[in-house]
Amino acid sequence: MPSPGRKQQFFAGLRAEAPILLGVAPFGLIFGALALNAGMPAALVQATSSIIFAGSAQFITAQLFGAGASGLVIVMVVFVVNLRHVLYSASIAPYVKHLGLAWKVALAYLLTDEAYAVVITYYQRTRSDPAGPGSPDRRHWYFLGAGLALWVSWQLSTLAGLLIGARLPESWPTGFFLPLTFIALVVPALRDRPSVVAAAVAGLIGLAGAGLPFKTGLLLAALIGIVAGTTAERRDQRAAARRVA
């Protein structure tokens, strides 16, 4: 089998991302509308979609800005909300380690939840040397195709939201897309007991701390959930070791 060329890889990535765009485009449209309603200037709403380029963080930025939160609080919340990207970075890193700095910078910029989900699956099910030992690994073109497809649709849907935003009925529960997207991301990953423990503990404490100001309840819940997950993992390993012994 000949090694897939750059163009084939690029378009394969683009096609793989296509179904996700159907779910993401309305999300971008709603972001544009909501951010405008929250009082952000249109130019900055569009700039947010290219500078931050992370759906949930952008929603929270707009909501916090609308609620009068300080810049420092917004920055801290964006940090916490986007901390999961460190995990994506660590998981993708071995596959892109041979690339130059420009590629690493470009692909890191495009490393959204939706691109990660598609790209890591592709990396895991394909070989680095498709045309035999020593043949070039061009899978970063697939990554670029998937990432750019998402980027372009995100910019265009934000623009569409800015243009038709004022006409979205007030009673539409558009904000509900935020928890729904998180559910779509987190639930499929709850395949082992420690992850379920981490999620359950964080969810309960998040609920109990929901009244705390500036999302401190969220931060507290996340930290305790992480400790609970790590503890559960250690307990499981000790139990497994006892069974072996």
Binding site: R84, L87, P179, A202, G206, L218, A222, L223, G225, I226
Partner: peptide
């Protein structure tokens, strides 16, 4: 455990 913890703490 960062993703399940942080995201669930937002969702619930």
């Amino acid at each position: 455990y960062v993703p399940p913890a942080v995201l669930t703490a937002i969702i619930v």
